[in-house]
Simulated assay, not measured.
Amino acid sequence: MNYTLHQLQVFLKVTETKSITKAAEQLYLTQPAVSIQLRNFQDQFDIPLTEVVGRQLYVTEFGMEIARAAQNILNEVQAINYKTMAYKGKLSGKLSITSVSTGKYVIPFLLADFLKQHTEVELVLDVTNKNRVVRSLENNEVDFALVSLFPDLSVQSIPLMENQLVLVANRDFPMPKKPLTLEAIQALPLIYREAGSGSRFVMERFLNQLDSKGTKKMELTGNEAVKQAIMAGLGCSIMPVIGIKNELQNGDVQIIPAEGLPQSSQWNMIWMKSKNLSPVAEAYKNYLLENKSTIIQNHFGWTEQL
């Protein structure tokens, strides 16, 4: 056996993605380079690691055993690197965080100074939908998750700030003389986020207080798509105020006063109770606890003026 760490990394990525093309993209390599490394790795075993049926790549049972061993080896190598940097007095290692999509307006500010202080820390950040966030936590793929609604998991949390949702319309929407009633809101052409979104959950919870439900004009994936539809005059939506700062300043959208709004949820940084935090993750947790109030006031204090 004369396999290299690089071959282990390539093989492990292929087993994760079940695709040479996707593995190449995530490793920033060419497809031929991945194929060559995979073939060289396979040549060291008499039993197939992968097989192709039709056009789909499958990992054999033996291949999965080797993948688990490869992961253990790479974990040990990473631990050696961490210990070396720690001996030099530097915090190093991987910090893995996932966030629901609206969290992209929050998470950069929660990370910036920490990463400046600890330049040897490698950040892996996945901004995605709520379902994938929950899966990442369940599968122990991440250290932390930024959420506005708690998943049905056994977690610990650091409360951060309110997530206020308001009724948003474009610049041409006539400003009412008094706050709109729930019935009036339900009569509007409403734009919904996709199913499973935290914003969608809060919006539906608010609208469903009456027997009749809102008139759904359309359903769009992502906060940015909803904003563009609002600015184009396609309808109104109930959405997080943190995601419309620039549009408010530019006068592209406006917040419409409404009874029962804003609705609020809570941004929390969470992690599984059973999670053994790495030194990097532990340091980041302590950083958040010590600095969250200052970060929130400096970057999100403007929301209190609305």
Rank of each mutant, 00 (worst) to 15 (best):
M1W: 04
H6Y: 10
E16H: 15
K18E: 14
I20E: 12
K22V: 11
Q26L: 15
L29R: 12
L38M: 13
Q42W: 08
Q44V: 01
F45V: 02
V52Q: 07
V59Q: 09
T60V: 09
A69P: 01
L74I: 08
Q78S: 14
A79L: 11
Y82L: 06
A86L: 11
T98H: 05
V100M: 04
T102E: 11
T102H: 01
F114V: 13
L115S: 10
L115G: 08
T119M: 05
V121P: 05
L125S: 05
V142L: 04
V147Q: 04
D152W: 04
L153D: 02
V155D: 01
Q156I: 02
Q156F: 05
E162G: 07
Q164D: 13
Q164L: 15
L167F: 07
V168Q: 08
A169K: 05
M175Q: 15
M175L: 12
E183Q: 11
I185D: 04
P189C: 08
L190E: 09
E194L: 07
M203F: 15
M203V: 07
N208P: 01
K213Y: 07
T221W: 00
T221C: 02
E224I: 10
K227C: 09
K227Q: 13
M231K: 15
L234R: 14
V241W: 00
I244G: 01
N250G: 00
V253P: 03
A258K: 06
A258H: 04
G260V: 13
S264M: 10
S265Q: 12
W267N: 05
K275S: 10
P279D: 06
P279Y: 02
L288G: 00
T303R: 14
L306M: 14
